[in-house]
């Protein structure tokens, strides 16, 4: 971890520990700081992790580089990600490792430690098929993906559909809520869209507000742009006709998709959304549009004006999602080797 940084990985770890306790285990979260800046100190950081001892535990589950390098017996790794700058991000602009002999040396040190650990680690899982794929490509190891489950399935119980489509979640350019707002101009005035979630930047919020004004959609598009608590969010989803979620090339199903199906709502997405297309199949569990406003408008209209079909797709989505058995109970059994 890095002090003062809190994100998806931290949330996942907290929920993981909470669910371990629910299942009757004594569990504690340990967040060990790792500093990757300056880059040439990374080998010393690896050495530092190797000096650590972890007393009084029966089992350790490590989730990130370099936590799994602690010298511990009886360790299971549930990998969120490796040090990506040494792998798939090496040649991207996001790498902090310079492309000279020093950067290459640090990269190779990281890779050799990983290779050594992974090749001897039988209890190795990842959080997505993309992470598994990278592990195979770069380190030559096979590791099954155990996807992160939803954390409060009891809230997403479904319910009567009121007259709106919901687009929940963080608002930013790569989630493309703006395409949905633009699509609304092509729909009859009875159709309604609610965008609910915290905007990442003021520019993201502005873009949606401007679109609404430009196409005179004030009475048809509700922009509820703030951090909603879980109950509020579930209430929106439970009473929607359908859920719209348009991430760009995402490496996971996304909580939005999983929660929609938990609540038996069909999902409208685009053909470039990434891994969630494994769950959202066109005309079966939802509708897959081209990433443009007209194509999306057609999908929204189809579900909005045929509630019976929307309900059937929602039910199919629910059945498909449940058949995957992505739950904390199942994951924890696998991680602890109890199944």
């Amino acid at each position: 971890m890095a002090p003062f940084v809190w994100g998806g990985a931290e949330e996942l770890a907290v929920h993981f520990v909470r669910n371990l306790r629910i299942m009757g285990h004594e569990a504690e979260l340990l967040r060990l700081p790792f500093q990757w800046d300056p880059f040439d100190n990374i080998p010393a950081e690896i050495a530092r992790f190797k000096t650590m001892r972890l007393p009084n535990v029966d089992r350790v589950i490590s989730m990130k580089f370099p936590a799994y390098l602690l010298p511990i017996e009886n360790q299971t790794t549930w990998l969120i990600h490796q040090y990506r700058q040494a792998y798939d991000l090496w040649s991207s602009p996001y790498s902090n490792l310079p492309h000279d002999w020093r950067g290459e040396l640090v990269r190779d040190v990281i890779r050799s430690h990983d290779d050594h650990y992974f090749v001897n680690q039988r209890k190795l899982f990842t959080i997505s098929s993309e992470v598994s794929r990278r592990l195979k490509e770069f380190n030559g190891v096979d590791a099954p993906a155990l996807r992160a489950p939803i954390n409060d399935p009891h809230l997403f119980i479904g319910g009567d559909s009121y007259d709106y489509i919901i687009a929940p979640g963080r608002i930013n350019a790569s989630k493309r809520q703006y395409l949905l707002v633009e699509a609304m101009q092509y729909l009859p005035s009875t159709a309604r869209l609610i965008v609910a979630g915290p905007p990442e930047t003021e520019a993201d919020a502005m873009r949606l507000r401007n679109s609404v004004a430009e196409f005179n959609l004030e009475d048809r598009v509700i922009l509820d742009m703030r951090f909603l608590d879980r109950e509020e969010l579930a209430e929106y989803v439970n009473h929607a006709v359908a859920v719209a979620y348009l991430p760009y090339h995402e490496d996971s199903y996304g909580y939005v998709t999983m929660e929609a199906f938990q609540a038996s709502k069909p999902v409208i997405t685009t053909c470039d959304a990434g891994e969630l297309l494994e769950l959202v199949t066109d005309e079966h569990t939802g509708l897959v549009a081209e990433p443009d406003p007209q194509s999306l408008a057609a999908c929204i209209a189809q579900l909005f004006y045929d509630r019976k079909q929307a309900a059937e797709m929602g039910a199919a989505g629910h059945a498909l999602w449940r058949s995957k058995n992505i739950t904390w109970e199942a994951n924890i059994s696998t991680l602890l080797g109890l199944d």
């Binding site: 340990l30 060990l32 500093q35 000096t51 650590m52 001892r53 972890l54």
Partner: peptide, 22 residues
């Protein structure tokens, strides 16, 4: 920042060194 520590004399000094390397 919680840092695990074993209090085991066999590894204590190297663990302390690790603390100091942060």
């Amino acid at each position: 920042v919680w840092l695990p520590f074993s209090s085991d004399p066999k590894t204590m000094l190297s663990e302390m060194l690790g603390f100091r390397m942060m």
